[in-house]
Write a protein that binds this DNA or RNA. Structure first.
Length: 281
DNA sequence: AAGAAGCCCTGATAGC
DNA sequence: TGCTATCAGGGCTTCT
């Protein structure tokens, strides 16, 4: 379940293999993932040079010298694996069942990039680089948690008048971009805020605490190389280790490290929320 | 019109 | 042991 820190980890793994290099040839092994691939995607990628590999929220964006940007989303189970000269050891074991290798990029210099995605929730899109901000999914995104325009004040404004639980509001990518279920649960615990609390009831003090908690948990998770649970591994096959620092996620019934009480699990908007009813109000 | 539910998909796991 | 049911969830669509 790649959220922002996992996608950033993948970006850092792929960037050295892609940036400044040409995609000699691209291959797709099926017609679609979550959505159909763009028209003639393989042809449009073949021969293109990658200027820069960026990230926005949970999306990777490869700026190409053809004037197009390749936008990639890992969905739930998507992973990229590097292979080739000097990287052969990563080909086996890191990429998963080859039946789910859906996209293959041959990079100049002998490196290959394979996209494997069993659940096929991932997707690829091509969009003009000049107007990449107008890509609909990008246009709707809120601030990056580590950017200057994300703050307690920004959160408070986004929460204004919203009757939905703060947990649900934080998952809304228009409020803040890149958070998923894991880091929302962890950030709320750090901030001492109940996931059940109505967003509109989050005042100034809580907004500031929450914004700082979001920043801290995202920063620490990136430093740890993301969280490896079930589906996630970095592009080099390495595993992140932030999952060992979860205070609440996946810990139903276990003791809260703050107060010793049992971590609870509830379902909100069809998703599990883990929290401590004592530490989080 | 905001909010919630349904949908897509497969693999891991729980339960019988 | 081997089957079936359940769960995981990002983002889009549909319903209320």
């Amino acid at each position: 379940m790649p959220e922002l820190p996992e996608v950033e980890t993948v970006r850092r793994g792929l960037a050295p293999a892609l940036e400044g290099r040409r995609i000699l040839r691209a291959h797709t092994r099926r017609a679609d993932l979550r959505f159909p691939f763009p028209d003639r995607m393989a042809e449009r990628l073949s021969g293109a040079r990658v200027n820069r590999l960026g990230r926005r929220a949970k999306y990777l964006a490869a700026d190409l010298d053809t004037g197009e940007t390749l936008i990639m989303h890992l969905g739930m189970s998507g992973r990229f694996t590097l292979g080739g000269e000097g990287l052969a050891s990563f080909v086996h074991g890191a990429g998963g069942d080859p039946r789910h290798d859906h996209v293959l990029l041959e990079i100049e210099g002998g490196t290959t990039v394979t996209f494997n995605d069993p659940r096929r929730f991932g997707f690829f899109q091509l969009w003009p680089s000049a107007g990449v901000d107008t890509y609909p999914a990008f246009a709707a995104l809120g601030p990056e948690p580590l950017a200057n325009d994300f703050s307690g004040a920004a959160l408070a404004e986004a929460f204004q008048g919203r009757r939905t639980p703060v947990k649900t509001a934080l998952l809304d990518q228009r409020v803040v971009a890149g958070l998923g279920n894991i880091y929302v649960c962890e950030a709320l615990h750090r901030a001492g805020i109940s996931p059940r609390r109505q967003a509109a009831s989050i005042g100034t003090a809580r907004s500031e605490r929450l914004a700082e908690a979001v920043r801290a948990v995202i920063r620490e998770a990136i430093e740890a190389g993301g969280s490896s649970i079930s589906d996630f591994a970095a592009a080099d096959g390495g595993l992140g280790y932030f999952q060992h620092r979860f205070e609440v996620y996946g810990r139903e019934g276990e003791a809260c490290r703050g107060c010793g009480g049992a971590i609870r699990r509830i379902v909100q908007s069809g998703r599990s929320s883990f929290y401590c009813g004592t530490c989080q109000r």
